[in-house]
Amino acid sequence: MARLRLPAVSGSDITSREAWLNRRSFLVSGAATGLGIGSARAAGTLKARATSYTVKDPPTPRVDVTTYNNFYEFGLDKGDPVQNSGGFHPEPWTVRVDGLVRQPRTFSMDDLAALMPVEERIYRMRCVEAWSMVIPWDGFALAALLGVVEPLGDAKYVAFESVLRPDEMPGQRGGLASLDWPYVEGLRLDEAMNPLTFMAVGLYGDRLPNQNGAPLRLVVPWKYGFKGAKSIVRIRLVADMPRTTWHSMAPEEYGFYANVNPTVDHPRWSQGSERVIGSSGFFGAGRRTTEMFNGYGEQVASLYAGMDLRRWY
């Protein structure tokens, strides 16, 4: 089984989609013929196991996934995170998992590498701002990590806390647009335990670039992107709904649930369709109709049975 390794990779190591696709087919054929796939690439490969968690749509080019980011810790513009995250140190890193659990524990990235086999999942990503991507993530199911710490019976929610490092994150040094740092997101425990809920340590087969939330981030494909806390240092199991950042900042715009829902508009724009991100100029990628739960209804709709999703947006 492939294990999580975290060799350093420079931020400029950007592969084109073609190269990536070629590499994948090489990996697949390499594995099929029993070749050592480790030699297929230079250091930086996570050697993730392919899974059936994948969508048909073509993945968004890597250059777009790694240059068009909302990561307010590094600035407000989509281009700021790649520009301003060069001085961020994702190593060494620990994440504390505690709260209402039997075995509270602090994991180093090496601990995680030893415990969690890395798999690849190609997920849709729908931003609350009505744009979307398709991203090949590498990581492991959050449920597997939570299984290690053993949640207690009264744990109802999971809170995710991002790192607070004003020295390395210019967006955290105050100013007009500042949020209430550190960034906090949250899930209901049953949402967190859903097999789709994912902790990413890489994308496109390589360790996460700083601008994408290195070294460890949450990915919840049926929810708007802001639910996916980045650069996580603490995961807490709690009894009450956590005070999450965007929700407490503008509750009428950003719900706690934030499930992708084309029938519940954002106050400033419709959520019925989305701009597909991809470097193809004005006339390329275009627009697609937004799907309920971002197309993951089959796996998650039962979590919300009987809930009024207009009220609990």
């Binding site: 777009d64 240059t67 281009g79 470097s279 100029g281 004005f282």
Partner: peptide, 9 residues
């Protein structure tokens, strides 16, 4: 028009 405006032109 020539794909020089980034990801979300």
């Amino acid at each position: 028009a020539h794909n020089q405006l980034g990801a979300d032109p």
